[in-house]
Simulated scan of single mutants.
Amino acid sequence: MADRNTLGEIKKTIEGYLGKRVTLKANKGRKRIVVREGILEDTYPSIFIVKVFGDFDTDRKVSYSYCDILTETVEITICENNRPIKVS
């Protein structure tokens, strides 16, 4: 079972990268993996929001929970100074 401190540490780490470019790799089940790039826009007590780049007419935003990172359903990589930093 996840410890509250562990989720809190993940949240603090993500809060430190607000406004940075990220790459998300999400496991959607049944061998479906979605890779998205965007900007880490905001954090909330249970979720974080990423503004997704793409060929859309409107802004798209996706949200994931910190538990998704803990259970490795979502892998987030921060692109800072042209070198990736994996958040786990």
Rank of each mutant, 00 (worst) to 15 (best):
D3G: 00
D3H: 04
N5Q: 14
L7F: 06
L7E: 04
G8A: 01
G8N: 04
E9V: 02
I10A: 01
I10L: 02
I10R: 02
I10W: 03
K11Q: 09
K12N: 10
K12I: 01
K12T: 05
T13F: 08
T13Y: 11
I14R: 07
I14S: 11
I14D: 07
E15F: 07
E15Q: 11
E15V: 03
G16R: 04
Y17K: 07
Y17E: 14
Y17V: 06
L18V: 04
L18F: 09
G19Q: 09
G19I: 03
K20D: 15
K20H: 15
K20S: 14
K20T: 13
R21L: 04
V22R: 03
T23F: 14
T23Q: 12
L24H: 06
L24W: 10
K25Q: 13
A26S: 10
A26T: 05
A26W: 12
N27F: 06
K28D: 05
G29L: 04
G29C: 08
G29D: 09
K31R: 14
I33Q: 12
I33S: 11
I33L: 07
V34L: 07
R36M: 10
R36E: 14
R36S: 13
E37C: 06
E37H: 13
G38K: 10
I39Y: 12
E41K: 11
D42E: 12
D42G: 07
D42Q: 09
D42W: 09
D42H: 12
Y44L: 02
P45A: 06
S46E: 02
S46V: 00
S46L: 00
S46P: 01
I47C: 14
I47K: 12
I47Y: 15
I47E: 14
F48V: 02
F48S: 05
F48R: 03
I49P: 11
I49V: 12
V50I: 11
K51I: 01
F53Y: 15
F53K: 07
G54Q: 08
G54R: 06
D55K: 03
F56D: 10
F56P: 11
F56L: 09
D59T: 15
R60K: 05
R60M: 05
K61C: 04
K61P: 07
V62E: 13
V62Q: 08
S63L: 11
S63R: 12
Y64I: 03
S65L: 02
Y66S: 00
Y66A: 00
C67A: 05
D68S: 09
D68K: 04
D68I: 01
I69C: 10
I69G: 12
I69A: 09
L70N: 12
T71A: 14
